[in-house]
């Protein structure tokens, strides 16, 4: 088994981005007007029609689809983002400002390297800003010479937007390095014990990677399966650790509310079409009623597009107390 995996790794490069067809809004609801990925892809590598196809040869791996698709249809196969975040956190204790770099820039110094920064969505940035409290640098200086250089502007825009939504102090923890001379790179020195710890961790993570993902060829899950997009999961993790004021700012700007009008006849079709499980059949006084949890809603709008009575609407912002609990959809 290991031998086969090693061979596979040596011969086939793992796809940088995987596509889960069952999450695509246009696939779940024929004719649903969502072309986010097609519009955002600068290389024109994504086509939607009878199927959603990402052409690996045309793809420049800028990862913008990963950070823009509202439904989590695209996933970067690497790296494990939580591992990356925790490493940044640990480095922050010994270094004044660790550097997150791009593996496409082998000559540039960084403490951790990941894929093209395009994957850093609002949710990723918010997560890093809140959890890496000591701050870190994102080395965008190399972007000038890169075909995916447009990513730099997107990251800037995203961070500015986060700052404008009442998190200026937090957003400042992420320092975007735009010019070469702005980079403050400190070398890490290891003692004997440290060296072996690093060696052990690296070996462990490589082995885990080798043993993991046995079913890597199976990218598409069943349509009826409910899956929360990874970015939503990140946001929910942040939310549970916030002060009331920050919480309010986050739920107002990044969470959604589904409401219904009186035409809703509790047919529960929307429960089926919802890709994330934000809608469910909940208890009611006389008969079951539609229930909703904001923490599970990605705001994709599929339910409102699908509702035969035109009864559902998705609104930006969540104003009630607990986004994690299910409560009856407001009429």
């Amino acid at each position: 088994m290991i031998r086969e995996r090693l061979l596979h790794k040596a011969l086939d490069r793992d796809a940088a981005v995987t596509v889960d067809r069952s999450r695509c809004l246009g696939m779940r609801l024929d004719g649903f007007a969502c072309a986010t990925c097609v519009d955002v892809c600068p290389a024109g590598a994504i086509t939607t029609g009878d199927d959603i196809v990402l052409d690996a040869d045309t793809c420049t791996q800028c990862m913008l689809c990963v950070s823009e698709c509202p439904s989590g249809c695209f996933n970067g196969s690497k790296p494990d983002f939580y591992a990356l975040a925790s490493k940044l956190m640990r480095l922050g204790r010994s270094l004044s400002s660790p550097v997150l770099g791009c593996s496409g820039m082998p000559d540039r110094k960084a403490h951790i390297k990941g894929p093209c920064f395009g994957y850093l969505s609002y949710e990723h940035l918010i997560f890093l800003a809140f959890f890496v409290k000591d701050g870190f640098q994102v080395d965008l200086a190399g972007c000038v010479d890169c075909g995916n250089g447009f990513v730099k502007e997107r990251i800037k825009e995203r961070l500015d937007r986060i700052a404008s939504y009442a998190f200026p102090g937090v957003a400042k923890r992420i320092i975007l390095v735009l010019h070469e001379d702005e980079l403050d790179y400190q070398d890490i020195t290891y003692d004997r014990r440290g060296f072996f710890t690093v060696l052990k961790n690296a070996t462990l993570s490589r082995t885990a990677d080798l043993l993991d993902r046995q079913d890597k060829d199976v990218f598409s899950s069943a349509y009826s399966e409910k899956k929360l997009p990874f970015r939503r999961e990140l946001l929910n993790k942040v939310l549970s650790s916030l002060s009331d004021k920050e919480r309010k700012a986050l739920t107002t700007n990044f969470y959604y509310t589904v409401g219904a009008d009186n035409n809703c006849d509790d047919c529960f079709s929307c429960v089926g079409i919802c890709p994330t499980g934000a809608l469910k059949v909940g208890p009611g006084e006389a008969s079951p009623r539609l229930a909703f949890s904001s923490a599970l809603c990605s705001g994709c709008g599929l339910c409102s597009g699908f509702c035969i009575n035109g009864s559902l609407r998705v609104e930006k912002g969540f104003w009630e107390d607990d986004p994690f609990s299910f409560s009856a959809v407001r009429r």
């Binding site: 779940r28 349509y223 009826s224 529960f268 079709s269 089926g272």
Partner: peptide
């Protein structure tokens, strides 16, 4: 595998 369980067929 593709069925989402919306029950529109049933209706």
């Amino acid at each position: 595998e593709r069925c989402i369980g919306c029950q529109r067929c049933q209706k």
